[in-house]
């Protein structure tokens, strides 16, 4: 057991926990930030995607001990103040989610994509989003939502 101080969504959280515990379980079951989902536990489905210093990471394979104290963790709860990130608005416009379970991870991955590449091509979208599974088959609408958000973002002065 060890003490960890985590910066999550610009808030400090302190947990005492075993070193090998993954960030996913810390977020969900110890801190109650349940927007980040458990899907496979081996970084193959992307449901658990969060940002660590702005980069999309699979929290299910990230031991808590691997995080540095000053690293900034962002979860779906902290992506935008009122769920009004351009990606989230586009997701609603495209009516993308079905069951919704994978969507937090999809949205975090997509937000990271647009931060890196504000005007991705369809091919670039598919490559960047390929690690995020959706069993309901909402992929076409996910692509559409990202294209909507990219267009809106690029129109901004």
């Amino acid at each position: 057991m060890a003490d960890y101080s985590l910066n999550i969504n610009n808030q400090t959280y302190n947990v005492e926990i075993k070193e090998e515990t993954t960030l996913l379980w810390v977020l969900r079951e110890h801190l109650g930030l349940t927007g980040t989902k458990y899907g496979c536990g081996i970084a193959l489905c992307g449901s658990c995607t969060v940002h660590v210093d702005g980069k999309p990471m699979r929290s299910c394979t990230l031991p808590i001990s691997s995080l540095k104290k000053d690293q900034k963790i962002t979860t779906i709860e902290g992506l935008s103040p009122n769920g009004d990130h351009e990606i989230q608005k586009a997701w609603i416009e495209a009516q993308a989610p079905q069951c919704g379970y994978c969507q937090s991870g999809q949205i975090m991955q997509a937000a990271a994509l647009l931060a890196e590449n504000p005007s991705p091509t369809r091919e670039e979208i598919k490559i960047y989003m390929n690690g995020n599974l959706c069993r309901c088959g909402t992929y076409l609408r996910i692509v559409k939502a990202i294209e909507i958000a990219a267009e809106k973002t690029s129109q901004k002065p």
């Binding site: 969900r28 079951e29 109650g32 349940t34 927007g35 980040t36 989902k37 458990y38 979860t75 779906i76 709860e77 992506l79 769920g83 989230q88 997701w91 609603i92 009516q95 993308a96 989610p97 919704g100 379970y101 969507q103 937090s104 949205i107």
Partner: peptide
């Protein structure tokens, strides 16, 4: 009509059983 469950699924607040505390 826009689906009523979509906003909370986009904000990460939609509650699944696995989220219950």
């Amino acid at each position: 009509q826009p689906r009523v469950d979509i906003p909370e699924k986009v904000m990460g607040t939609a509650q699944f059983a696995i989220d219950i505390q």
